[in-house]
């Protein structure tokens, strides 16, 4: 088995009295596609934010890619995010006044230096070669999500996080996006953690964990 890219030990996150994530022990091997399921408020988004370095745990240990996230400063976390993590959101969160290429270049800018040619080829790779100069408002939901994917993988992250990436998409677009992610993963060999409440989407993964009220209740391995 491949070495673990994510290692948590008693990972806890509480907001005041409310405990969003009860102590969680989890190991994710490198290259795995992990689906996280549970209904809203089950702590799955909290888990994703913690792993992505957007949030800090209240207790426990969290190691991602050999880096102890608890030891990093605020700017250190930002550096970790830009070099290690790509995130796809349900709401897309594209910058409305930038074109598709420029949205990808924004990620390059924070990572190192913007490179337009590379951003173009990334969009071509997700099948948006014809919509480079369009603003997010002029793109369909599926196209927007593909821009998000291009943006998430542009810096070659080791870890791709998806926060219900298909939540706003119809079935056809969902399949398209998932197929795309699968293809890209085969090429780039990143680890995927995908939060979803859609059973069908979860089946694309290698393993599914079920969270309920901040507790890991069930674990399921896909046969494929």
């Amino acid at each position: 088995m491949a070495p673990a890219i994510i290692e948590t030990n008693g990972l806890t996150r509480s907001y005041g009295d409310i405990c969003a994530l009860k102590p969680l022990d989890l190991q994710v091997p490198e290259g795995e596609w992990l689906s996280v399921m549970g209904h809203s408020g089950s702590g799955k988004s909290t888990f994703m934010n913690l792993v992505g370095g957007l949030d800090r745990p209240t207790a426990g240990s969290l190691k991602v890619g050999g880096e102890d996230l608890l030891m990093l400063s605020e700017d250190g976390l930002a550096r970790f995010r830009r070099e290690f993590v790509g995130i796809i959101f349900q709401q897309h969160h594209l910058v409305p006044y930038l074109t598709a290429v420029e949205n990808v270049m924004l990620a390059q800018y924070f990572h190192s230096v913007p490179d337009e040619a590379e951003a173009r080829s990334a969009l071509e790779r997700v099948g948006l070669g014809h919509r480079l100069k369009n603003r997010p408002g002029e793109l369909s939901g599926g196209e927007q999500q593909r821009v998000c994917i291009a943006r998430a993988i542009i810096n070659s992250p080791k870890l791709l996080l998806g926060d219900e990436p298909t939540g706003n998409l119809d079935h056809k677009s969902t399949v398209m996006v998932m197929e795309l992610l699968k293809e890209l993963r085969a090429e780039e060999r990143f680890t995927v953690i995908m939060v979803t409440h859609n059973q069908e989407v979860a089946t694309w993964g290698d393993r599914t964990i079920y969270l309920d009220d901040g507790v890991l209740v069930r674990e399921e391995r896909m046969r494929s």
């Binding site: 070099e83 990572h111 190192s112 230096v113 490179d115 590379e118 990334a122 810096n155 070659s156």
Partner: peptide, 14 residues
Amino acid sequence: RQGAKRRKLLAAAI
């Protein structure tokens, strides 16, 4: 070959 690595080297050099 990898774009991210290339850009990172460039940024560091700058």
